[in-house]
């Protein structure tokens, strides 16, 4: 039995169809990354699966429990950590976790022990008895995640867990999520970041306008959708034609774009970063002086352009 199963679920708000028939399966102990721009329907999908919102049509099961008809039982076995750190600002970290434990109807002693345990695990012991007003963004997110783990849930829903966090806190949170998965937790996470989905997810589903537009392992999607992009800024704009020709000559890709404003040429590296030396040699032979050179992953926008013919809607 898969951990999460969704069959053709839909949700409209007035005239707007936020989710337009999504099917998904998440196997036990794996991470599914739901990737998409703002307004794609990611949060709506999570809210339906976590019983916060009624499903218009279709069905969904979490660990075999129907989210619509067995909502209370579903709530016992899921954890939810949101985009907005859903913790009480006026309470201390410890009080927040004890409160959640009590709302799971744990005996007081057990709730206290569990809170102390989680605070230690999330490196919050020193801040445990301070109110959340004094917490940094990263600490709040960690506490929010800790709160979603009070009941040791087999299934965890994370709605944009690292949006707005600094890189260090992001990586810290990623590590924690990986540990949980290693212990057998199933995770469904939404994100706007390609690198996050790449790092955490076993499978990625790309959604846009409430529909699945691509899915696969990160590797499959990368091969299919986007290779590294080489960007070269040249010193002398009058040499732009020679530079472009030199890059074309390495026979990599037909997609070479020139931006005269920034004097930058960008080219998709079909063979990956391995062909970087070839490109540099070709430019050198053509006597093109390089001012700046970068290799980067395709952006979400470029992937969307490729998948849908339009960029990410703003």
């Amino acid at each position: 039995m898969p951990s999460i199963q969704i069959r053709d679920i839909r949700k409209s708000f007035g005239d707007i169809e936020a989710v337009r028939g999504i099917d998904l399966t998440v196997e036990k102990g794996t991470v599914l990354g739901l990737l998409g721009p703002n307004g794609a329907g990611k949060t709506t999908l999570i809210r339906m699966l976590t019983t916060l919102m009624k499903i218009d049509s279709g069905e969904a099961w979490v660990e075999g429990l129907n989210v619509d008809t067995e909502a209370q039982a579903v709530r016992e076995i899921i954890g939810l950590a949101g985009q907005y750190a859903a913790v009480d600002e006026n309470l201390t970290g410890r009080e927040n976790l004890i409160m959640v434990g009590r709302l799971y109807h744990m005996p007081m002693k057990e709730a206290q022990l569990r809170a102390a345990d989680l605070l230690g695990h999330f490196d919050l012991t020193d801040a445990a008895d301070r109110t959340l007003k004094t917490y940094s963004g990263g600490m709040r997110r960690r506490l929010d995640l800790a709160a979603s783990l009070v009941n040791n849930p087999p299934v965890l829903f994370l709605d944009e867990p690292t949006t707005g966090l600094d890189p260090q806190s992001r990586i810290a949170l990623w590590k924690i999520i990986r540990e949980l998965v290693a212990q057998g937790t199933t995770v469904l996470l939404t994100t706007q970041y390609l690198d996050e989905a790449d790092f955490l997810a076993d499978r990625i589903v790309v959604i846009d306008h409430g529909k699945v537009i691509a899915s696969g392992t990160p590797q499959e999607l990368k091969t299919e959708l986007g290779d590294e992009v080489l960007e070269v800024r040249i010193r002398d704009i009058s040499r732009i034609n020679e530079a472009t020709a030199a890059l074309r000559s390495i026979g990599e890709s037909q997609s070479v774009h020139v931006d005269f404003g920034t004097q930058t040429i960008s080219m998709t590296l079909d063979q990956g970063v391995g062909s970087l030396p070839k490109a540099i040699r070709a430019l050198d032979v053509a006597h093109v002086e390089i001012e700046d050179l970068t290799v980067r992953r395709p952006t979400l926008d470029e992937i969307f352009l490729k998948l849908t013919g339009h960029g990410v809607r703003v």
Partner: peptide, 13 residues
């Protein structure tokens, strides 16, 4: 606004 109600509604309380 702070998302606390969402947290409470996702709990079996």
């Amino acid at each position: 606004a702070k998302g606390l109600i969402d947290r409470f509604r996702s709990l079996p309380m």
